[in-house]
């Protein structure tokens, strides 16, 4: 039984930065292209509107799918987002880029749909949380493989496992994980979007991450090499 190689704790660990290409996504058209598009939208130019739909729509659809887990609802959200854009482009002040602004609108639309949809109590997350023995020592494996995320992603089944793990996390926890870790919103922004406190977001985020780690346990097993 090979043990996990010891690492010097703290010497190599660095807090992560924001995930790339997410809430603060770059404008794919570049700032000049965006300025022209915004001007076109403000002038009611149908061509500019269509170009915005074609350029930003695919990303918005991905955000909608992630939050709602349902193609039809995601498409409804994207349609609502572009209709809202058409109606309220005057409110766009250019403090963020157009893509970020649209992303926030679609996120809000998806969260509203999600709230309307949640009529039954969600599943408990308890089963994924750590267990301790009477001496307060953690249960669970003492060893793991040392494969990096990049190495794990070389395996054919990893992406499917990760997607399934995200889908299995109970709803309110999964939403926090998606917004905070995968969409790149800050803790404060996530709290505002979900109308709750920073403290509640931190707790839910940690539990969601812990649940994902538990669900991905087969990938970290020391026998997997």
């Amino acid at each position: 039984m090979a043990r996990q190689p010891l690492r010097k704790v703290g010497s190599t660990w660095k807090p992560p930065g924001k995930p790339a290409g997410q809430a603060q996504a770059q404008d794919p058209a570049g700032s000049k292209g965006e300025a022209a598009l915004v001007a076109g939208l403000r002038a009611g130019d149908a061509k500019a509107f269509e170009e915005v739909v074609l350029r930003y729509g695919p990303r918005l659809l991905i955000v909608g799918r992630r939050i709602l887990g349902n193609e039809e609802d995601a498409r409804d959200c994207v349609q609502e987002t572009f209709l809202a854009t058409h109606r309220s482009i005057g409110e766009f002040q250019g403090r963020s880029n157009l893509g970020t602004w649209l992303r926030r609108i679609v996120t809000n639309a998806a969260l509203m749909k999600l709230r309307a949809r949640r009529t039954r109590p969600e599943e408990s997350i308890e089963e994924f949380l750590p267990k301790y023995d009477p001496n307060l020592f953690r249960g669970g494996p003492r060893n793991a493989n040392a494969l990096t995320p990049e190495e794990l992603l070389q395996r054919a089944d990893t992406r499917k496992l990760v997607q399934e793990a995200i889908d299995r996390i109970p709803g309110s926890y999964r939403t926090v994980l998606l917004l905070r870790d995968f969409e790149g919103y800050s803790t404060q922004e996530t709290a505002q979007l979900l109308d709750t406190t920073d403290g509640a977001i931190k707790v839910r985020l940690h539990r969601a991450r812990t649940a994902m780690k538990e669900l991905l346990a087969p990938l970290f097993d020391e026998e997997l090499r």
Partner: peptide
């Protein structure tokens, strides 16, 4: 450093987040 279970737990926690971010980012 003293608790192998917590070391494995934290290491897997970090890798799980990185995997989630990578898979979602690749989708885009």
């Amino acid at each position: 450093q003293l608790c192998p279970m917590c070391q494995v737990h934290f290491d897997s926690y970090v890798r799980a987040i990185a995997l989630g971010r990578q898979v979602c980012s690749d989708d885009e």
